[in-house]
Nucleic acid binder design. Structure first.
Lengths: 219, 219
DNA sequence: CGTTCTATGTATAAACT
DNA sequence: TAGTTTATACATAGAAC
């Protein structure tokens, strides 16, 4: 579990804020210089602080002045075009977060349904307390998996020496068992997004030839 | 071993440079905004690029303009005072690296000498091929360790129930054995600084009550 | 191209000194 | 208050799409 994540908000503790300021200002200046060096472009940064009477600037007064001059020379209209202002910046991050949330909800639903299906298939009761939506999705996933299995069988019939040997090949079994283990410890629904962390144990990226569970579900 | 460390120099490959530029510019803007938010200060960044006709600025044209105005209002003399210009920035990093180098050399020497001493004490030959400097340091370290042992014995005599039970307490033995294991696989002298990495397996920080080897050696 | 993924390197929050 | 150390979070180079 993540333990130390800083909230993106004003640090009320004075000494902590000052410490953070110094560390981050230093890191920022380094980043600016690296960007200029690596990409051969002009840039500058100016940072005011209550701790020092003069602002820290990069690369220096002359360089910053030059960059600033170019900037001010542009018409207001043009400036507004490609500008990254605070609002659009924050909106971008919100949109990104919302997208992540949607994605995680989809994945959680996949896990949930597969978990239900697992309980059902292993005869541990299941099915009786389920509502229509769950039954529907479980049925859908069962159907999908059956189709996948048929495909595999067909493929095996066509070429017995193929690298992908059988639907129950050891490696594949192992992967699925690992997935089930994860679910066992994480049976619930939406708790992934709770609080300050995002855990994504269900990763179906890559190995699409092997996995029977596809991200294409529940679009 | 480190495998991917980017050299701080102009990226000649066009597409790679552009990719890096976009990633880093985005990261830089994020850093600037975080610094302002966390520490409640004013700052701005302006980045020019051949990829876009207009520069990217943060927080926006107005905000940047305000910060810039304050900056330009200062007399040149004052500006130069607390300024972080490129040269001083680089000098700072060089000085820091040199300091690290010195520290690592000292630590390596400690390991080397202790290694020699170990060979000597375990009767694996040793001593015969050594020059005066090595003999001297080995002797010095032996002497120091003996003194430490006497101190411990004395401490034990004064208080047999003390938390630190004996000079040969299990935890201490274990620590030293681990150290010896590391040396076995790393018998040479200065190879720590070779290439792009710095490994510091010999860490005597903390637990100074327990360790017999002190960083105070070889000042 | 732009995206996504993953292994690494870097920044830095906290705890100590 | 400033420097050091350590554990974590974050940035990002490179590869694969």
């Amino acid at each position: 579990m993540t333990r130390k994540k800083v909230k993106l908000a004003f640090i009320s503790n004075d000494s902590a804020r000052k410490a953070t300021f110094k560390k981050r200002k230093k890191g920022l200046m380094k980043k600016v210089s690296e960007l200029s060096t690596l990409c051969g472009i002009e840039s500058c940064a100016i940072v005011y602080s209550p701790y020092e009477s003069q602002p820290d600037v990069w690369p220096d007064a002359r360089g910053a002045g030059r960059v600033v001059a170019q900037f001010k020379r542009m018409p207001e209209m043009e400036q507004s075009k490609k500008m990254v202002n605070q609002e659009s910046f924050i909106r971008g991050r919100i949109a990104k977060a919302a997208e992540q949330l949607k994605k995680l909800r989809k994945e959680n639903r996949e896990k949930e349904v597969t978990h239900l299906m697992y309980h059902c298939l292993t005869g541990k009761g299941g099915l009786h307390g389920l509502g229509l939506p769950d039954l529907n999705d479980v049925a859908w996933m069962l159907d999908y998996n059956l189709k996948e299995i048929y495909k595999r069988i067909e493929a095996i019939g066509k070429d017995r020496a193929a690298p992908v040997a059988a639907a129950a090949a050891p490696e594949e079994r192992t992967q699925q068992q690992q997935m089930f283990s994860e679910w066992m410890g994480n049976p619930g629904g939406d708790q992934q997004m709770g609080g300050e962390e995002m855990i994504v144990p269900f990763n179906d990226g890559g190995n699409q030839d092997v996995s029977l569970w596809s991200n294409a579900f529940f679009s």
